[in-house]
């Protein structure tokens, strides 16, 4: 427990330093923050333009998709905010910067995740939250305790699943330094996927992101339950509540992958 607390504290200390370093360039910071907000909003504007031409996409109305968009954005946004820069691991190994981080009396994962931390990365969760609030307002749902629970579950487990993806896939870079781009297709590609209703995609892809990379548990399955929609894969209803288990398993697997990677790095030096 003390170890975990120290992992969080040391991350916070290093992240605060990066934040201070970034604000050293004030003008640029404001513009970059504005740009980040715009970048995040781009794909929502695309959705709006699509709905300028139709009122349903894959059978879903805009506020329903807004629910998906908001929860997906919060999931990847929060994960990226806390530990997104772990994907620069290969670069840090190449330049030898990782060795310097390993000299600090703190867990390597905390130090790597805090690298280049910036408040700018709050843009995505902030924009996604705004869309989510609008969607909840526009949907006019009849709230029951299980729906509240499902929503809360998405907001907690979503970031954990994406965080596990960031860390787990980055661990591959201990063995193969150039895996970063491939990892982007799972993380950022995955987040794009989850912004749209599952009914839009081919069955094989749905199977892949349910049983392979467990993206479907981030928001698709719980949202189907909240909206009372049928599951295109026809999975048992219990799957819609399985996110906490999946998140815990994913986090555990990511932790093991990171350990294995770090051990390999320290014992092979490659």
């Amino acid at each position: 427990m003390a170890e975990l607390r120290w992992a969080v504290t040391s991350w916070r200390l290093a992240a605060a330093m990066w934040m201070r370093a970034a604000t050293a360039y004030r003008t640029s910071f404001v513009l970059l923050a504005a740009a980040s907000l715009l970048v995040c909003s781009l794909d929502f504007v695309v959705l709006l333009l699509m709905f300028h031409h139709t009122d349903r996409l894959g059978g879903w109305r805009l506020p329903e998709i807004g629910l998906l968009y908001g929860t997906a954005g919060i999931a990847i946004g929060v994960a990226d905010f806390l530990l997104g820069t772990v994907d620069g691991l290969g670069e840090r190994i190449r330049t030898g910067a990782l060795d310097t981080l390993l000299l600090r009396p703190a867990p390597a994962l905390s130090m790597v995740c805090a690298e280049r931390f910036t408040l700018r990365r709050l843009a995505r969760p902030a924009q996604a939250t705004a869309v989510l609030l609008w969607a909840l307002h526009a949907l006019d749902l009849h709230w029951s305790w299980d729906k509240v629970l499902l929503l809360a579950m998405m907001l907690v487990c979503g970031p954990v699943i994406f965080g596990a993806l960031f860390v787990g896939l980055s661990s591959v870079q201990f063995f193969w330094g150039e895996a970063r781009e491939l990892q982007n297709s799972a993380t950022y590609g995955g987040a794009t996927l989850l912004q749209y209703p599952p009914d839009v995609f081919a069955r094989d892809l749905l199977l892949g992101v349910t049983f392979g990379v467990p993206l479907a548990f981030v928001n698709w399955l719980p949202t189907l339950q909240i909206l009372g929609r049928p599951d295109p894969l026809g999975l048992p209803v219990v799957c819609r509540f399985a996110a906490p288990l999946v998140a815990a398993a994913a986090a555990g697997a990511a932790g093991l992958a990171w350990r294995a990677g770090l051990r390999a790095y320290r014992s092979t030096g490659s």
């Binding site: 139709t54 781009e181 996927l193």
Partner: peptide, 27 residues
């Protein structure tokens, strides 16, 4: 790295093409 990038482009294309297909099915 370039090849991995090409794979990423392809993955994004698969996802986005599906959304376009849904839109064109409606219109």
């Amino acid at each position: 790295a370039t090849f991995s990038g090409a794979v990423t482009n392809s993955v994004f294309a698969v996802i986005l093409a599906a959304t376009f297909l849904a839109l064109w099915r409606a219109r």
